[in-house]
Amino acid sequence: MRRVERPAPGGQNADLRGWDAPGRSAARFLRLVRIFSGIQPTGRKHLGNYIGAIQHYVAGQDAGESIYCVVDLHATTVPYDPRELRERLYDTAAILIAAGLDPERCILFRQSDVQEHSELSWLLSSVTAWGDLNRMHQFKEKSAAQRDLVSASLFTYPVLMAADVLAYRATTVPVGDDQRQHVELMRDIAERFNARYGEILVVPDGQFPEVGARIMDLQDPARKMSTTGGSVEGTVYVLDEPKAIEKKLKRAVTDSGTEIRAGADKPGVTNLLDILAAARGTTVAEAQASMADARGYGDLKAATAEAVIALLDPVRTRYEELRTDEDRLEAVLAAGADKARAIAADTLADVRRVMGVGPAR
């Protein structure tokens, strides 16, 4: 686990002596680079998920202590099929491992296996403003799509998301660009809790991808690539065969003219350049420069398809080996849950103590 010098509350470096003193939990953990992020087990994982989240999870294994959670509780906030939920959970776990997550170098677990998430969510709801939840963009979007029932859990979803992170006193939260509002809310919740009860929780920083932050639908560059609101033709799935990837990218919508450059007036080309840069691990400017001698958009599409296939094909191959062994996947998730529970239980004990909940320690 890597330690970095971070200022403790009050502007002084945390003293290594007294790390275990009551009431100093947040200060002692400020020295740890601890990364936490969660991923839903719903839908088929697509290129946007891979570039915007999964790649950063893998890189995070070398940046500090990394904790990654498949958030099955979040998936219950909207109508779903229980059997499919379990299948998708295994799919997601296998994709994460196939992409490079190493259970020996990180903590990978299933959210519902660690009950501290649910209890901490309830306790944090006492310092969460109703008005803040009512302003959440994703609640407005998802509730508008529900025909029969808008669940209370959909409304309080951001509190559980805050608990997911704050339970581990994470310093860094790598998420997609669309999660900025949720990260700001969890920071507000942590600050409000600390102001009322003392410095117990760590206020995390969001980490957002600079390249590929928003991968758009290939058929509608004004809409984010998605398994729920997008088109099948415009969505590249992580497990797509190379020929399917090539076909989708060759049919990608571009723009008028022939100039290959990024810009607000060229959303289709910009999206392809974003994908090309992310797949190659370069900047958009470098991706654009590499197409200086291109004969037209066809060359851009071909280069992008080649880069995406090179990026995803090894993951698909490894996934096929892993997915058939559900017992092995369960063992990985269970072992990760044991490690996660040990950390979350410590945080929850501190929260209970300062809030006066349960027996005095």
Rank of each mutant, 00 (worst) to 15 (best):
F155I: 06
G100A: 03
L160S: 06
A75V: 09
Q111D: 07
Y157C: 03
R88M: 10
Q115G: 00
E84A: 13
A167I: 02
T92A: 10
A144E: 14
L166V: 12
S153Q: 05
I97S: 00
Q111H: 15
T171E: 01
D132A: 05
A93R: 02
R105Y: 04
F155W: 14
T92F: 02
D164M: 06
E84F: 00
V58I: 14
G52W: 01
E116H: 13
Q146K: 08
P103L: 08
T77M: 04
D113V: 00
L149M: 08
M136C: 09
I54E: 05
Q146D: 01
Q111F: 12
D164Q: 06
E104W: 12
T77F: 11
D113K: 08
D62W: 07
F155D: 00
L85R: 04
Y50E: 09
I67H: 08
R83M: 01
D91I: 03
W130K: 08
D72E: 04
A162C: 13
V173E: 03
R83E: 13
C106V: 12
A98E: 11
I54S: 04
R105M: 03
C69Y: 12
E119S: 01
S143P: 02
T77Y: 13
L96V: 11
T156S: 15
M136W: 15
S153P: 00
L123C: 08
R169C: 03
T92G: 11
P103K: 07
D72P: 03
V71Q: 02
P82Y: 07
V150N: 01
N134I: 02
C106M: 12
S112T: 10
L47H: 09
L89D: 03
V150Q: 10
S121E: 10
R169T: 00
Q115N: 00
T156E: 07
Q146A: 12
I54C: 06
D102W: 10
V165K: 08
A167W: 12
G100F: 12
Q138F: 11
Q61I: 07
T128N: 10
E84Q: 14
Q55H: 02
G60P: 02
Q115A: 09
T171F: 00
I107W: 14
A98P: 11
I95H: 05
L154D: 04
T171L: 09
V127Q: 06
Q138E: 07
W130H: 13
P82L: 04
D91F: 00
S143G: 06
G100C: 05
A94M: 04
Y168E: 02
L166E: 06
A167P: 02
Y68F: 15
D132E: 14
L149T: 12
V58E: 06
V165T: 14
E119Y: 06
A63G: 00
V78H: 02
F109Y: 15
N134Q: 14
A94K: 05
Q55I: 07
Q146M: 14
A145R: 15
A98T: 07
A144I: 08
L154K: 07
G131C: 02
